[in-house]
């Protein structure tokens, strides 16, 4: 099930670069193109790379599947609770924007240099959705990878498949 040594070495080199690029896309979601969904998909593609190159045991050494489902449900819960925090005005109200605290700097109109400390509730929501998409797509990939190596149900069927 493991691929050759060349593929494994290149994967070990590239894996963390892909993860760091996905984290960049998630964290800078309110300044540059991208956001939670795209960044989470990029991080999950690192999982696909790892699964193609290595085996199931080494993947389970890196991530427990309980961790992945915790990331997924925790991300969705964080997203909904961040939306509910602004319920004083409306659901999904951006209550941190322009307040001056963390993520609260105002932004001038027009083209300007980005400031990471802006955006109100957008950066926390981006991180929550990124966590959710990473966990969800990684779980789908992992279970489909396991399902691809399932044994046939009975003996005759496996004999038919061998021909």
């Amino acid at each position: 099930m493991r691929m050759s040594k060349i593929v494994r070495t290149i994967t070990a080199l590239i894996f963390w670069a892909v993860v760091v690029f996905g984290l960049y896309v998630v964290i800078h979601g309110h300044l540059t193109p991208g956001g939670g969904f795209q960044g989470g998909a990029v991080i999950a593609s690192s999982t696909a790379l790892f699964l193609v190159a290595f085996s199931k045991e080494e993947f389970l050494k890196k991530y427990k599947d309980a961790f992945l489902s915790l990331a997924e449900s925790g991300g969705l819960t964080l997203f909904i609770s961040t939306a509910f925090l602004g319920i004083g005005t409306t659901f999904f109200y951006n209550f941190i924007a322009n307040s001056g605290g963390i993520f609260g700097n105002p932004v001038p109109f027009g083209v300007n240099n980005g400031d990471l400390n802006t955006g109100g509730t957008l950066p926390p929501m981006n991180m929550a959705v990124g966590l959710e998409v990473f966990g969800g797509i990684s779980l789908i990939l992992f279970f489909m990878f396991l399902g691809a190596y399932l044994k046939p149900f009975n003996k005759e069927e496996s004999e038919v498949h061998k021909e």
Binding site: V25, P33, G34, G35, F37, Q38, A41, V42, A44, S45, A48, L49, L51, V52, I137, I140, L141, M144, F145, G147, A148, Y149, L150
Partner: peptide, 25 residues
């Protein structure tokens, strides 16, 4: 560029991986 990043990540990366797993199975 938003849609481009989503398409490159999902269409070219994840869907190919899932199809290759399915072919192996």
């Amino acid at each position: 560029p938003d849609v481009a990043i989503a398409e490159a990540g999902i269409g070219a990366g994840l869907t190919t991986a899932i199809f290759i797993f399915a072919l192996r199975g």
